[in-house]
């Protein structure tokens, strides 16, 4: 069986003023279906560039990228848009929800660009997706009426709405406090337990331990790639966490219909 994602010899250079930045200098990586991979590394290591290429937002100078059987490096702009729409889900550090737009409509957004989905179907699927992150009750709330953790869960619901083969999360906990970060990691772990492949970019080692496999990028090359020795369980960590702030924030089921 071929890997879900395979890159070979990725090279990417930038011209920043007069200096040439060798962001990627020959990266090889394979990710199988159902994996939960954390990509780490210091800032400037090239992990963001790798993330952008994996997310089909950027193209490498050279090298191969095969995603779910498609040779991504050969695709044109419209084809890349289609791949992003059908096969990928994005979760960003700053949530990137549309302001003055309800949670439901935010989640529906990728379906709008899919074309073949009727408005009624889109709404149904968006509600299902929100239910998976425990926010079906907040479907009509606007982003400014939601906490940071809730906004990030709306973003996760949006990333899943098109049943992607891969969810790419770029520092998803970077703007969140420790407890909310744990909640988000729990959502990711639960999604992964349900078979969704996740690639998480983070420079925080204590977030990376929730992934099953850790890849470290340094100076444009992969310097470490190994299974996490002791994968932390976000639910257990959350249980140990003092509930000081929790009293202030409303409690709701974090993930409903989850298979244990």
């Amino acid at each position: 069986m071929t890997a879900l994602l395979a890159v070979k010899g990725l090279v990417k250079t930038y011209q920043l003023g007069e200096t040439t930045v060798h962001a990627l200098q020959g990266v090889d990586l394979q990710i199988e279906r159902g994996e939960f991979v954390a990509i780490g590394g210091p800032s400037g290591s090239g992990k963001s560039t790798l993330m952008n290429i994996l997310g089909c937002l950027d193209v490498p100078d050279s090298g191969e990228y095969r995603l779910d059987g498609e040779p991504v490096q050969d695709l044109g702009a419209d084809e890349l848009a289609r791949v992003r729409n059908r096969k990928l889900g994005f979760v960003f550090q700053s949530f990137n929800l549309l302001a003055r737009t309800t949670a439901l409509e935010n989640v529906e957004l990728p379906l709008l660009y899919r074309g073949e989905v009727s408005p009624a179907q889109a709404q149904e699927r968006a509600l299902e997706s929100l239910a998976k992150v425990g926010l079906q009750e907040r479907a009509q709330h606007y982003p400014n009426q939601l906490s940071g953790g809730q906004q990030q869960r709306v973003a996760i619901a949006r990333s899943m709405v098109n049943d992607p083969v891969l969810i790419l999360a770029d520092e998803p906990t970077g703007n969140l406090d420790t407890r909310t970060s744990l909640e988000i990691m729990q959502v990711f772990q639960d999604l992964n337990a349900n078979g969704i492949t996740i690639v998480l970019v983070t420079h925080e080692p204590d977030i990376a331990v929730f992934a099953k496999r850790q890849v470290v990028v340094r100076d444009g090359k992969i310097t470490r790639d190994e299974p996490t020795p002791n994968v932390s369980n976000a639910r257990e960590e959350l249980a140990k966490f003092p509930l000081v702030e929790a009293a202030a924030s409303p409690t709701e089921p974090l993930l409903v219909g989850k298979a244990d």
């Binding site: 997310g55 848009a81 289609r82 992003r84 729409n85 994005f90 957004l109 660009y113 899919r114 098109n162």
Partner: peptide
């Protein structure tokens, strides 16, 4: 964001 979620 729209481009990222698949807008051409």
């Amino acid at each position: 964001l729209r481009l990222a979620v698949g807008a051409r």
